[in-house]
Design a binder for these strands. Structure first.
Lengths: 225, 225
DNA sequence: ACATAAAATGAATCGTGATTCACACTTATG
DNA sequence: CATAAGTGTGAATCACGATTCATTTTATGT
């Protein structure tokens, strides 16, 4: 016997592994899964292409992990927002804001997590992601209806609708390459979007009119057809 | 000069061309763009693979056309619903129902049109598709706010949110291969989904509570994890 | 230092599917 | 009928990226 894995090696391997994940994450954040080839990931992580397979059985497995990590981070934030003190409605509003604002800050990533097509393996994870959000919202809605704060409704449908609303408003019109437009649109426009979303969602949930100032901003600014 | 295209030939070509489109459409409807290879399309249309390229410069162009046609059909239906007589709200409700019911009837197609990743060329068309819907809704919402029937709001955001809500509720939880589950869930469940969507959307638009019977149905039936 | 075993490498291989193309077959004109 | 000009064919080619693997490098134990 003349060799056995030692701590130093184990540490280096772990380091390389997380460097790979970080690299993959960075590539997805920048250009979506589509432009994240194994060789690119390897290069960015500073290892050879083949080495990727020392750490992950396949590309799908690597990206599945990237996806799960990114997902976890986002879902945690929303979960946190829902765990703050306050009425169900207040907490839902905070959660919606959190979701929306974070998605606006990293639109390509948000788009990748919510909508971009990838591996079948990753697609399965995406379902989890959407579901995780929906379930968080669902629970809060159930609390709200239980206390009478919210009118009776199917909490699963409402929760799913919240996810859909945010996803569509934020990434739908901005998905392909037009993320640039978003960045260029200025924080004021972004704020307007978030307020619009929140208002729409809260009205849908409560059935009560909100007075929030959502008087049309400069609509003409976007492509109007 | 000894040959010039004549009517008969032109007709045959046109026929083959539309047969190709029909075949591509059928494949997309059944399995999404992912399982619609050029060779499959050719086979289904009863021509050789190479012949496809006598009619379309590339796969992207063929599917782009398929996409546009499918889109047009759907958008026309919604447009029709919005053109019926009645208040803005009534018309919006009809339009939402139309959109939702049609998507439920052909979920794979709906998913392909709304969300499935494909060619960059087709992705561009998808933007058009979503936009077309959003613009239809937007116009109706603008009419509603003009007459005071609807409270002031950013019509573009609301319109986009409507699209997102329907898309997510209908195709989100049902996208990968679970369309089967949808079909198996029975018309009663489908009806429940549509009602839930409509209620959510109308409340969001009007800020007024609706009494529609949306008391939770059998929620336990879906994956509850 | 030497031997051994694991780890890293990256060029070669493989798989998938779109696209091409040399050839055979049809159609229109004189 | 001969000829020009298409059309249709489908096997071969290409492109692109994931995956493999023979070889080299590095690490450990004696």
């Amino acid at each position: 016997m003349a060799y056995r894995e030692t701590d130093r090696v184990r540490a280096r391997k772990a380091e390389a592994r997380s460097r790979l994940i970080a690299a993959a994450f960075a590539l997805v954040t920048k250009g979506g899964f589509r432009n994240a080839q194994v060789s690119q990931v390897a290069e960015l992580a500073g290892v050879a292409t083949g080495s990727v397979y020392r750490h992950f059985a396949s590309k799908g497995e690597l990206f599945s992990e990237v996806f799960r990590i990114a997902t976890q981070k986002e879902v945690d934030k929303v979960s946190e927002a829902l765990a703050t003190p306050g009425s169900a409605l207040e907490r839902l509003e905070r959660a919606l804001r959190t979701f929306a604002v974070r998605a606006l800050k990293a639109p390509t990533l948000a788009w990748s997590l919510i909508a971009e097509p990838v591996d079948p393996q990753v697609d399965a994870d995406r379902l989890q992601y959407r579901l995780a959000y929906a379930e968080l919202f669902q629970r809060a809605i159930e609390e709200g209806t239980a206390t009478g704060e919210l009118p009776p409704q199917d909490p699963r449908i409402s929760a799913t609708a919240l996810v859909g609303t945010i996803a569509e408003v934020l990434v739908g019109p901005l998905s392909p390459g037009s993320h640039a437009a978003l960045g260029a649109s200025g924080p004021s426009h972004q704020h307007h979007l978030v307020e619009g979303i929140v208002r729409f969602c809260l009205q849908a949930l409560t059935g009560k009119a909100l007075n929030t100032d959502n008087s049309p901003q400069s609509f003409a600014e976007g492509a109007s057809s």
